[in-house]
Design a protein around this nucleic acid. Structure first.
Lengths: 332, 332
DNA sequence: TTGTAGGCGTTATCAC
DNA sequence: GTGATAACGCCTACAA
């Protein structure tokens, strides 16, 4: 391990001078050059553990997601990266897998490694960011909020998304649009199905919404089972609104088994299903601005890291893709 | 920030004793209990920066991939996680995006944060792990090797995969199987197309292989263009072997535009195309054992971290899914 | 502009 | 078994 002392010795200066060269202090050009040359020769890398210990903060931010295999979250990660890297921060991705214990463990790491902040997809509404907050680590949640915690969040306009997706199907002439949504209590699931319910009540007034909505787990298999359930109804729907990308894949499979497929059987889904363009033929997609959500969250986080102390806010992004600049904000 | 001193004071012992409680030293049961209670009450988390500084190592391992949005790599990440978490390590995912500079930056972080080791998908054959090696950080490459570097690697049997995929198409009765492979010089691309070439030469003896293989960039758009090129030949192929999942998606799109699709037009692909089950109808998949590759790499890395100093080795995994235990090893 | 020195929170080496 | 104490490598007053 070559240290600041080695560099100092080789450059004929004091360790303090070396430190100043790397942190922008006042150093004469000649000495600065000598230091840089020495550092180069010795392949010196500042020891971040020491630096973090001393400075009580690092330039790494953590992105904690609930499912690293969900393309929505990886797309979001790209957005976070773009902004963070441009600002000189590095991003590390942590997979909580929706598990509170694993999530908490990553929080501990973030604290103990003095990470600068956390962009978080909460594993559950019960997610506890108290430790993070106590340690003054900025947190921004994405995709869903944490209403009880004093942290910013960036979410999509899920209610409108639900309305749009459902409305599009009715507008195409389908007469009874079912709904496959996420777990009870999950914010995005409630909002998206809420949008569906409004439209359903209006367009299928004779039917009971409770019969035509089924909750699943936001995963492929859940979507398959849910679709099968809908098809087994006495009066099955002729179209379905699906609240996330993975469940849509499962639903397609289930339809397929019954010899059905879009566009004959209507389907609208919230969020892109990447890498499945053909499967999407005939499907309506309410695009989730995944990258934008990530980028916006990173921007907010960076502001907080830099000391911004505005009141906590929730930023709601439209499903249409606006320019990064307009990120419309709604009070919370 | 609550420190070991705070805990010590509250428990009425010395800081050294507190440290011993957390690191398995000899401490009397009563004092140990007192320490634990105090730590609990104070919500004490060991400061990892300090610990890493002192111990010169941490229990975090980095997984550096070239494309965080490629499901193959995220599936691999799951394998790495499973093994690492079970051994008490945490995993952070870093996205090099195939860029040498970004990759190098993450190496620096790994070194400077004293991470225990790195599982790496090399951005290029030119990837330089010298710094990592100098600093005695174990490295295991996955998916592709780094022949010039003294590091272990875990790869799939790509040559066989190429043969299998291609052979399956001929066996189905197709008569001229084209090939869409990855960038020139990329190990997996060369091997997979090498397997194709063998079979092609044998089964389509009249045709020039050079006409029927096209190199692309392992991405969706590249696959689309490549497929279009193949279809534009004077004597276009009636089937295609595609060297990775993303390009297969692009190829499907291109076929679609020409009114073609599997199984009418033959297609075999190396690696699953998750979330696209319907699009796969009629495709042959040579499954890449993504998770297993990750898990095996993590195991090897852990051994190295624990001081194993066996000669460097390359582990080649079959495309069939063997039990984790048999991870067949081939000398390197 | 430059150098000296103290401390960030831990762990490990000593004595006791 | 337990407690001082000296590093680990860096940054930043403070002095010069």
């Amino acid at each position: 391990m070559t240290t600041i002392y080695d560099v100092a010795a080789r450059a004929g200066v004091s360790p303090a001078t070396v430190s100043r060269v790397f942190n922008g202090g006042n150093v004469s050009p000649e000495k600065a050059r000598a230091v840089r040359r020495a550092a180069e020769k010795l392949a010196y890398t500042p020891n971040r553990a020491a630096r973090a210990l001393r400075r009580q903060t690092s330039d790494v931010i953590a992105l904690v997601v609930t499912d690293i295999e969900n393309p929505f979250f990886t797309a979001m990660a790209r957005g976070v990266e773009e902004v963070a890297l441009a600002a000189g921060f590095s991003v590390v991705l942590c997979n909580s897998d929706g598990d509170l214990a694993r999530e908490a463990r990553y929080f501990d790491i973030a604290i103990a490694e003095h990470m600068a902040g956390v962009v978080l997809v909460p594993a559950e509404p019960a997610t506890d960011v108290g430790r993070l907050v106590e340690h003054a680590r900025p947190v921004v949640t994405v995709d869903r909020g944490l209403p009880l915690a004093p942290v910013d969040s960036v979410v999509a306009d899920d209610l409108t998304g639900g309305r749009q997706g459902t409305g599009a199907l009715y507008d195409k002439g389908f007469t009874r649009v079912g709904c496959i949504t996420g777990p009870r209590g999950a914010e995005t699931a409630e909002k998206r199905s809420g949008g569906w319910r409004e439209v359903f009540a209006q367009r299928s007034p004779g039917s009971d919404p409770r019969e035509y909505v089924v909750h699943a787990d936001y995963r492929v298999n859940g979507g398959r089972r849910a679709m099968a359930d809908l098809l087994a109804l006495n009066e099955p729907p002729d179209a379905v609104f699906v609240a996330n990308n993975l469940m849509a894949v499962g639903a397609l499979e289930a339809l397929h088994q019954h010899g059905l497929r879009p566009p004959g059987f209507g389907m609208a889904v919230v969020g892109d299903v990447p890498y499945a363009p053909l499967a999407l033929t005939g499907m309506d997609v309410v695009p989730l601005p995944a990258r934008l959500i990530g980028a916006t969250a990173a921007q907010v986080l960076l502001e907080r890291i830099r000391g911004d102390s505005q009141p906590v806010r929730t930023i709601v992004l439209r499903h249409e893709l606006p320019e990064l600049e307009n990120g419309a904000a709604a009070g919370s």
